[in-house]
């Protein structure tokens, strides 16, 4: 059986289920309680689970993310919500200098079973300090896992395995997806290991993640009308990357376009491209192409913002460039 859910409802259900099933789980972040969550992901939670487990925090990203680390060390399973990826930079020290290396630096004595969720991405005209995509930075760090649920099913299903993971997991939820609706199975069980092919094709592998997935699928549809069968690979897990899935798709299609809302320089797209060079160079019939954000802080005005971001038309053009 399946049913219809929005991305927002899926995330809310996932957290609700976690809070119901495990008394060690609690939610903490700015306005998660009385306000009901910045994006209404936790509406009604405070009334149902109480203020001990639904904790409104001061505007103290460094302290409450760090407190999440301590609480995880102390035997709990915190879900820490950071309002946007831009604000997570205020907590970057605790994530990179503490959470990510506690286990290794302690010689395996301490693990940090912490889940950090944050909104990411552009497309809502909220300008440069609320719109960036820094997934690639986090994906650079050994010791954390980085997830990017881009479908309703992943929004519903990824939290449970993330909470079951003994190490820190960072989940990026693209704000452009929150109102997306889709059918999901009654029981959503997904892994947090593998990439997934979202559309089968043979002519080109469009490799993407997060908020760019719907754009890649739209581009594939446009390409299909022109007789080009594009395969769309959703990375889902940005660290560790599922290299085998990337290579399999490239080997099959012999052409690859990587779509990444991060800036091109030093991007996750650059890493994926490098892995293709390392593992599938001789499978390629054309150089790897990338569609990334323009190298500019994301602007406010709609036409400028749209021009700064990957768009289906840009993806189509990049694909066609591989056949010219």
């Amino acid at each position: 059986m399946t049913r219809k859910l929005s991305y927002r409802e899926a995330m809310r259900e996932a957290m609700h289920e976690a809070l119901q099933n495990d008394p060690r789980v609690f939610l903490m972040g700015e306005d998660v309680g009385r306000y009901g969550g910045t994006y209404a992901f936790s509406k009604g939670f405070l009334e149902e689970f109480g203020p001990a487990r639904i904790r409104d925090t001061p505007l103290s990203e460094l302290a409450f993310v760090g407190a999440g680390i301590g609480a995880a060390l102390g035997g709990l399973r915190p879900i820490v919500e950071v309002m946007t990826v831009n604000f997570s930079l205020l907590a970057l020290d605790q994530i990179v200098n503490t959470a990510a290396l506690y286990r290794h630096m302690s010689g395996g004595q301490f693990s940090v079973p912490l889940v950090i969720r944050m909104a990411t991405g552009a497309g809502r005209q909220v300008a440069a300090q609320h719109s960036h995509s820094l997934e690639g930075w986090y994906a650079h760090i050994p010791g954390i896992k980085v997830l990017a649920p881009a479908t309703i099913e992943d929004a519903r299903g990824m939290l449970a395995p993330a909470l079951a993971d003994p190490d820190p997991v960072v989940i990026f939820e693209h704000a452009g997806l929150f109102n997306l609706e889709g059918e999901v199975p009654d029981r959503c069980t997904v892994d947090i290991v593998r990439a997934k092919v979202r559309r089968d094709g043979t002519a080109v592998a469009i490799i993407t993640y997060g908020g760019s997935l719907p754009k890649a699928l739209a581009a594939a549809e446009m390409l299909a009308a022109e007789g080009i069968a594009a395969e769309v690979v959703d990375l889902r897990v940005l660290r560790p990357l599922d290299t085998a899935a990337i290579v399999a798709s490239v080997a099959k299609c012999r052409r690859a376009v990587i779509v990444d809302e991060g800036w091109r320089s030093g991007s996750l797209a650059a890493e994926v491209s490098a892995r293709i060079m390392e593992n599938a160079f001789f499978e390629l019939d054309a150089p790897v192409a990338r569609v990334c954000s323009e190298e500019v802080p994301i602007p406010y005005a709609r036409h400028l913002e749209e021009a700064a971001l990957p768009q289906p038309e840009k993806i189509v053009a990049a694909v066609k460039g591989l056949f010219s």
């Binding site: 760090g66 609480a71 060390l73 102390g74 605790q94």
Partner: peptide, 11 residues
């Protein structure tokens, strides 16, 4: 300091 705060929260 944040870690200690969290350890105390767990307690």
């Amino acid at each position: 300091l944040p870690v200690a705060t969290g350890l105390a929260l767990a307690a």
